[in-house]
């Protein structure tokens, strides 16, 4: 009985939020948690820096990257359905063109829509004056 009463006291402390026991959850779709800058989410490819060398393709453990033609140049296409976000493509990129963004809401209805082509991945780095 004393053990149960001890437990009841500590749970009551949580109900009344005594002593640094606040509500910690976040109402997800309405408010979001701040992501760390290093978060490994959806890829992004620097349009100017990428040379389409395919090192990311060869180093990808799950072979989820393919180099495809986009306009006049070659860029990677990432199949998010197979990607495990290990970050190797970022590590090995010789031109440092690949990076990973904080976009993590990647669920979709079809497998085809999980293939992110260059049109969705490319971004233009702001040139510093």
């Amino acid at each position: 009985m004393p053990g149960i009463i001890k437990g009841l006291i500590v749970t009551l402390k949580h109900v009344l939020q005594i002593g640094d026991r606040p509500t910690v959850t976040v109402q997800y779709p309405y408010e979001r948690m701040k992501l760390a800058p290093r978060f490994r989410g959806l890829h992004a490819v620097d349009e100017d820096a990428c040379i389409g060398c395919g090192i990311c393709d060869t180093n990808c453990p799950n072979s989820s990257i393919k180099i495809v033609k986009h306009g006049t140049r070659w860029y990677p296409e990432v199949n998010i359905g197979m990607c495990m976000f290990c970050g190797y493509c970022v590590d090995v990129c010789p031109m440092n063109a690949m990076k990973m963004t904080g976009n993590y809401e990647l669920a979709d209805y079809t497998r085809e829509s999980l293939v992110y082509g260059p049109d969705k991945l490319l971004f233009k780095r702001e040139v510093k004056q």
Partner: peptide
């Protein structure tokens, strides 16, 4: 709500 309060959560809110 009581469970949520004990467990430092909000419980149903929407």
């Amino acid at each position: 709500k009581v469970v949520a309060m004990v467990q430092s959560r909000y419980g149903p809110m929407v």
